[in-house]
Simulated scan of single mutants.
Amino acid sequence: MLVNNRWVRASGDLNGKPISIQYREDWSLAQESERYPVCVQIAWHADSLDESTGFPSDQEQNQILAFHQALQDKLEPSENAVVAMMITHDAINQWIIYCEDLDVMKDALDQIPTDQGLYPIEVVADDDAEWQTFSKVHEVIVQGG
């Protein structure tokens, strides 16, 4: 595997609502390899919101975490893709993933079990060989907000 499974977590407020951002500790290894020119963003729009935390309910959060694990399990072993960042804010959980071949990634996404129904996700993909999508968020974290 090109990157390890250690994550850095940053949290704070964005527009008066809590935000949590997690990213791969050694993400730059994947970026510098120049193997992952396509940015895929997956957004999970939560049905529930815990008003005390500003995040999805515990039950839905467990589903989101299971989906996150399934993403890594299905997308990363072939090294076609790297789940680089996960952002949770205002009842939306977003993953920023970089891949080599979009068709291979689509096939891997189709292999994620849906035994409990389809996931409430939207998927978009763009060319982003310079990792601008990731870098914009990462720079804000490093600069302290």
Rank of each mutant, 00 (worst) to 15 (best):
A84W: 01
T114N: 07
E34L: 13
P37V: 08
R35C: 09
N5S: 14
E60C: 06
D73Q: 15
G12S: 09
V8I: 15
Q63E: 14
Q116H: 13
H68C: 01
I64W: 01
T53H: 00
E130W: 02
S11G: 09
I97V: 15
N4R: 12
N80L: 06
A108F: 02
R6L: 15
R9G: 01
V40K: 01
D58E: 15
S28P: 01
V137C: 08
E60R: 07
G12C: 08
S20Q: 14
E100I: 04
V83E: 04
F134N: 03
N93D: 13
S78Y: 04
L75Q: 03
S48C: 04
A84Y: 05
A30D: 01
L65T: 10
Q143I: 01
N62D: 15
T88D: 08
D58Y: 09
Q22S: 12
A84Q: 05
I21P: 00
L118K: 10
I112G: 05
T88M: 08
G117Q: 03
V123N: 00
V142H: 10
S78K: 12
E60K: 05
T133R: 10
A81G: 07
K17D: 09
T53N: 03
E122I: 07
Y36S: 01
N5F: 13
Y98N: 02
L71W: 08
E32R: 14
E25F: 08
W27C: 03
I42W: 03
D101E: 12
H89V: 06
D127N: 14
W7H: 02
S52C: 00
F134L: 14
Q63T: 10
Q72A: 11
N62V: 11
M1Q: 11
L118T: 09
I92V: 15
E100L: 10
G117H: 00
W44R: 04
V82H: 00
Q69M: 12
A91H: 12
L49A: 03
A46R: 00
R24L: 13
W27I: 13
Q111E: 15
L14T: 09
I121P: 04
C99I: 07
S20P: 02
P56L: 04
W131I: 04
Q132W: 05
A125N: 11
I96G: 00
V140K: 12
A43I: 13
Q41E: 15
T133P: 01
S78H: 07
F67W: 08
L49M: 10
G117F: 03
Y98I: 04
T53E: 03
M105K: 01
L75T: 06
G12K: 07
N15S: 14
L102M: 09
E32L: 14
I42P: 03
W44N: 00
Q94T: 11
C99W: 02
R9M: 11
G16I: 06
N4G: 14
E25W: 05
I92F: 02
A66G: 07
D115E: 14
E32S: 14
K136E: 15
P113M: 00
V104W: 01
L14Q: 12
T133S: 11
I87S: 04
Q31W: 08
A46I: 03
E34Y: 09
I19A: 06
G16D: 08
V124E: 13
T88L: 05
